[in-house]
Design a protein around this nucleic acid. Structure first.
Lengths: 170, 170
DNA sequence: ATATGTGCAAATCTTTTGCAAATTC
DNA sequence: GAATTTGCAAAAGATTTGCACATAT
């Protein structure tokens, strides 16, 4: 099945002897800590994002939210996304525009990670590594730039699809 | 002035004793080598992209093209971008959505590089380094993934804007 | 009470598409 | 003349906005 299946997490692929464990700090706690008002709908949306095993786009997020609150509106979804983005609590991804121009969101993890998107099957492989951290440090230092958000995405072909392509009829 | 000013090139920032020189292979030659038909308008668009010192979005590309061929249409611009993207001859960037959801394009360089986008002044700093190459290799190997396109973008604040922010009235 | 959040509908912005006419090989 | 490219106009898709009403502190 195509689309946005995370087939490996950063903690699996990115772990080395020096790596810590990856976690997703609670969005709710962060919001509260910042004195941001928690409404019913915000709570709902935030929980969906926090708990989702896959990367959600605005439409999908709305769809899921509607299962629990039929009255919720598209604009509320976008406004909440904007709020979370503004607070640096979620990351925005394109996933190489595998299916259209929409954006995908995920709760920020305690360590940045990359996304590898398979053009053929749509699988998303997450990847974190000390090499990424080093590169960020280097960019910040040598570019004299205070990095607030980073996004590293790659498109290509996963192992399974490379194999499949070989054994396929022309 | 805000917006998309490249204030440092990868060859300046990314050079180390091990670095090679950065270059942009000719798009035209690549198209010819691939047996792709070169029409008047394609030639025009390709030259604009190739020669542009800044990252162009579709609308800007159209605007520039119209100065030389008033009849050229938006759809031709998008179709040509699609062609070049499909051939892997240009890279697509978001530049952290500094000004809207549009995409920016640049002729592919012989070495991948990152883009640092200043949220305040809009400057784009390009950055290439062996550490980036290493990270790509590592991802490909450990993720068992054949990378075709990579995009590393970061948002934050450049030195000048960090300074400016300090001396600003609250 | 006051400030903030929400629904609704319409608007905006970017990109894509169907089709007939023009161009290229 | 067969295949490809283009212009045009309309459609599509994602996101934003103005405003009146509802909700939270």
């Amino acid at each position: 099945m195509r689309g946005n299946t995370i087939i490996a997490t950063e903690s699996q692929l990115g772990r080395t002897k020096n790596d810590g464990v990856i976690s997703r700090p609670s969005l709710m706690k962060e919001l509260i800590a910042r004195g941001i008002r928690i409404t019913t709908q915000r709570r709902l949306l935030v929980q969906i994002i926090q708990d989702s095993p896959r990367h959600l786009d605005a439409a999908k997020l709305l769809e899921i939210a509607k299962e629990r609150d039929a009255g919720i509106d598209r604009s509320t979804v976008y406004r909440t996304i904007g709020l979370l983005k503004g607070q640096g609590l979620i990351d925005e991804l394109d996933l190489m525009h595998l299916e259209g121009e929409k954006h995908y969101y995920e709760a920020k993890t305690n360590r940045d990670h990359c996304h590898l998107a398979c053009f053929r099957c749509g699988a998303i492989i997450e990847y974190a590594s000390p090499a990424f951290e080093k590169l960020k440090d280097e960019m910040a230092k040598r570019g004299d730039f205070a990095i607030r958000v980073v996004r590293l995405e790659a498109g290509g072909f996963c192992r399974r699809c490379r194999k499949a392509a070989h054994s396929e009829p022309a």
